[in-house]
Amino acid sequence: MSAVSLALWTVRFLVVALVVAGTIGTILKDRYTTAQWFEFVLFGLTIGSLYAQVALGYTMVYGVLRLINFAHGDIMMCGAFAGYFVATPLENSGFLEVHPVLGMTAILAAGMVVSGVIAVLTERIAYRPFRRVQGFAPLICAFGVSFFLEQTFRGLFGSSVKSYPAPKWEGVEFHWAGLSVPGVDVLVIVLAVAFMAVLYLIVQKTRMGMAMRAVSEDGEAAALMGVDVGKVIVFTFALGGAMAGIAGVFYAFLFKQVYFYMGFTPGIKAFGGAVLGGIGSVPGAMLGGFFLGLVESVGPSLFLDGIGIKAPYELRDVIAYTLMILVLVFRPQGILGEHMAKKRA
């Protein structure tokens, strides 16, 4: 094992050295104001809340099926498109300006329903035949689904980037202790946390949620106890899909655009978040998503600027992917995934 250990220790050393040197360098340079740091953190939390929502879908599906639903990011994209097609007429007719709550409810509902339905359909068509299959056939099939969804949306709605409507109330900023807080960020974080709390309650308190946890623990035992595993799986996909749909709507609102490829990168990153938190663990996925968002947002300025890298923000995704690979290599069981890891061994 010596060569491998050496390699692993080298990687550890390099990462720690980079982070420490970068941080010290950045602090010494003192290029960013407190307001800027605050902005980074807030944005990190905002985007992290979306990763957390998407990560939930990965983690729940992995729990019941032991499958990485690679197309989950694209299911988020479907929700964003659904939201777009509701939001645009609402905005054009002026409804969204006057009735923000009603309007947003309609948009979110569209995103939830469409994403949930598509998630269930993908399970029915693409994943169900693989329930008992080992090896990587299911994962490759998931890739196929991802491509199929992206390209279908491209064919249906075109490959151009569509700009999302921006109602005026969205531009509201709060001011507090000299810091300005964009209203959208607050809206997204608060609503995302609220939805996740609801999901957590569903998983913890309802009969279906309990059945889901039982299947995650031990599918065969749960089936013997009379749990309808098929139904639980459909429920899981619907729940995860709906959550991704909400995230898609928010994502589109934040970045003001929708296009067919928009789900891919956040999808991969959210998976990283799910692994980071401990795949199979619902609280872990939320935690991992937030953490990933924070690192991705703060990291470029904190680690990379300090060691003299130009335009560090371009390398934001590199930080996210590197973090994901490090987690896969060094701690595949994640932060809260202790018991899952034992079962995999």
Partner: peptide, 24 residues
């Protein structure tokens, strides 16, 4: 070397991450 211990699905995602890192 570092990904020797990473198996199956996780390896797929780790290698995918590598490809994206190189591109960026």
């Amino acid at each position: 070397l570092p990904v020797l211990g990473v198996r199956g699905d996780y390896l797929a995602v780790a290698t995918l991450g590598l490809g994206e890192i190189v591109r960026i």
